[in-house]
Nucleic acid binder design. Structure first.
Lengths: 148, 148
DNA sequence: TATTGTTATACTCTATAACTATA
DNA sequence: TATAGTTATAGAGTATAACAATA
């Protein structure tokens, strides 16, 4: 396999993600949230809440950072901390009423913001693209698992 | 088009990029560089240098941030600033001998690190994946250009 | 007047590790 | 001993805007 080929694929992946991020982040910031904060709100949306460990696994934010991100969302009144009923060391983070209302308002709005980008994609295009990305992701995860 | 479909494609894109980033960033940090610094070194590699404006366009780092990133690379002795010959306001950033030597050593090593992930991709797989990402990227750029 | 790069401000995220309270 | 979350530290990227020098 020629080096040049996978290198240009990687460049495309990075450019594509950056294009998505820059398109998406502009809208998120206009809501007064950072991408990490939005990620947390969306992860907590339509759930009864979850502890820091689960939240860290889903968002890929490490626990030290997570404390700070949650602090800022608490300060905005969007989430609250509750003691876990089953584990005295553990806390549950959940959306407040205000946070749930924000989620209910901004998540659909964010999807509407993203939707026009897919105007020319039919459902088979979408499925094919998703399959390609899945395969690529698994390739990285396997290589990582092999300790490369 | 069902909302669910493009949403899951976007999740795949984010997961895929994160898998790449985490696989790639580990290696970059082991070289004592941050991803942004590595990006700059690679961008400047095999060139005679470029000014801040060009550098910002290629790396998508805004000019305010760029001053700081370049400062840190200057402190490491990897790049230098030169006054532009043609524009008194402008400066050219170029790799020092030490920076060029680092580039010559780490860029191929980084490609070797990435290569095993593509073990099961044939050249038609790579081309197809690249075409998919290109199409997706253009969709975001067009939507952004339309001011969505 | 517009552009290039610097500086300043204030915030946010990252990595790491020591620490506490509980399991 | 191990785990959940907090705190502390130091560094790095982000957005924004004001600014000096030059075009």
């Amino acid at each position: 396999m020629p080096t040049k080929t996978y290198l240009s694929l990687l460049r495309q992946l990075a450019s594509c993600y950056q294009a998505f991020e820059s398109y998406s982040a502009g809208h998120i910031r206009s809501l007064g949230l950072t991408p990490a904060q939005f990620d947390l709100i969306v992860t907590l949306g339509n759930t009864a809440g979850m502890n820091f460990k689960e939240l860290g696994e889903k968002t890929l934010i490490t626990k030290g950072t997570l404390t700070g991100v949650v602090d800022r969302l608490v300060a905005k009144g969007l989430v609250r901390r509750l003691a876990s009923a089953t584990d005295g060391r553990s806390q549950v983070v959940q959306l407040t009423e205000k946070g749930a209302a924000l989620f209910a308002r901004v998540f659909p709005a964010h999807l509407e913001h993203l939707k026009p980008a897919f105007a020319r994609f039919g459902s088979s295009d979408l499925e094919q693209a998703e399959a390609t990305l899945l395969r690529l992701r698994q390739a990285f995860e396997e290589a990582r698992g092999r300790g490369n």
